[in-house]
Write a protein that binds this DNA or RNA. Sequence first.
DNA 1: GTGAAAGCGCTAACAT
DNA 2: ATGTTAGCGCTTTCAC
Lengths: 337, 337
Amino acid sequence: MNLKDLAAHLEVAVSTVSRVLAGRGAEFRISAETQRRILEAAAEHGVRADELGRSLRLKITRTLGLVVPDISNVFFATLARAVEHRARQAGYLVLLADSQENTETEAQVVQSLLSRRIDGLLLAPVGGDGRHLLPLLSPATPVIQMDRLISSLNTSGVISSNAEGAHEAVRLLAELGHRRIACIQARGDSSVIQERLRGFREAMTELSLDPSFVVGDAHSQSRAREATHALLSGAEPPTALLTLTNQLALGALEAARDLSISVPDQLSIITFDEQPWASLLSPPLTTIAQPLEEMGALAVENLLRLIENGGSMTREPLGQTLPTRLIQRGSTARWMS
Amino acid sequence: MNLKDLAAHLEVAVSTVSRVLAGRGAEFRISAETQRRILEAAAEHGVRADELGRSLRLKITRTLGLVVPDISNVFFATLARAVEHRARQAGYLVLLADSQENTETEAQVVQSLLSRRIDGLLLAPVGGDGRHLLPLLSPATPVIQMDRLISSLNTSGVISSNAEGAHEAVRLLAELGHRRIACIQARGDSSVIQERLRGFREAMTELSLDPSFVVGDAHSQSRAREATHALLSGAEPPTALLTLTNQLALGALEAARDLSISVPDQLSIITFDEQPWASLLSPPLTTIAQPLEEMGALAVENLLRLIENGGSMTREPLGQTLPTRLIQRGSTARWMS
DNA sequence: GTGAAAGCGCTAACAT
DNA sequence: ATGTTAGCGCTTTCAC
């Protein structure tokens, strides 16, 4: 049953029903009696204005698109929860798409979402140079990037302070007395890794330590294990490690176990990415946590503002950065030289 | 730019453009030349039939609703990924809603999704008796439940073999020589917990062991820790535990650590719910894994079949059950009495 | 082979 | 204080 049927049933005009159900009865001076009849009948039959017709007419869908590289990853799942909650609070629903860490899929789902006329897009991009997305996104399309940032897309974004997080980690290790601090990195193509690496190098330089003490080249746990293994069996092994992602940390932990190197007595480890199980490992991991809740909520808020402004970016900063938080646990300890 | 604009631009009728873009040019005997012109111009301007107008006209949205209690939970996040992939394969997008383990929110989001005219609903219900959902779901609404099952909703569902999983776990422990096997449960209101409990009791009875060796009353890790603590410090402590959820397992592990009881030497532990970090704990956890990928894909397939049949359930079984898998790791060992 | 027109459900502009 | 009508973008029936 829709507004038209209800109107026929009550022998009033559809427009009257529409106005009353939109809560604008007073505004149009609909008589109290008519309002009551309409409201009652609507409640009785469970009638609500159909969003589809409404969307077509108003040219808004009250729907946001959310594209993440892997929704089964706790990081993005938590981000998605924050996004969904904040969006629903504002009366929006979320169309979810998983790009499977694949730029082609990403382009495809973005196009699907756009042809559904989403009001705005929240994108945690896979990476790359953005050439696959540029032709799809008109400058008028409201888009906010999250976590990673592709500058060529020329949209604003919400990220966390990756460089500063690395800074803080190095500072902590130095305060604990460490001098030989190594960094286990992944491939350097994403803005996230690049920023973390930059932070590491800067901090090391500031402390007059060796900023080139960086190994690793892949995202995988097994490669991190190999790289760390080589590092620790070398001539002058580090006394502390900063791993740039959680998977790398696990690889590093494995390598330490392989070589019977005790953490944190013989080796301190700090890693990016807080995970629910970080505190359950032995030793519990010291991590650099990202403010996922705030990131998601803020991204939605920025996007809604963009939508209200008709999609036009009003020369805002090209990336709002939220602070990371260092969570000190058992994998870091003072170094007695 | 839409079909109408394109038609005007090419000086043909909208209907012609619609037919060609729908790939039905041949069917309507549109001349090769006209087809070529339309296709070319469409590609050039990136024109695709707008889904909104299409949906209104065809009364289908090619959109499925997915409602889960907590998308940040790895379990549901993995399920969501499977659902999204399978749905997109079939040309559907997914509207995601998080019910926050709250029946009121659940009812609200289901209504929102329905007013968006989703073609079908995938629901991992919060629980309860379903009274909050019944008035919203007409018998014609295609719905498939996942993971948990509320029978009053009278829809079919895809779940995993919770009772059989518990059976298998008990059997393994018995084979390892355990006789005093305890079960750490949560609140018993969800079908999932009830089934697992039933499996435990049946298996214990079959083996002539004590089926009433069950403790615990809450979902939380801390309560499980307390319950296990009491259990292990008691007069006749168990030599093996079956915990019904992962959080309970973590609490149990904590309790064992508190009391310096070595796992698995002095206590074996098996738990429901495989998690990505299960193998990284020390000892690595023996788990009962649920086939999340299959569950998600199968739920989508069932839902699509329901949609094709116009929503009418053709007297199918009220619950398709997928087998769980026991993953044996280091937390279980032979008991030397 | 192609076009014109109706109608999906809604809201807003324009009548009364 | 309420009704009539146009039109959002599409597909399909009917027409030629």
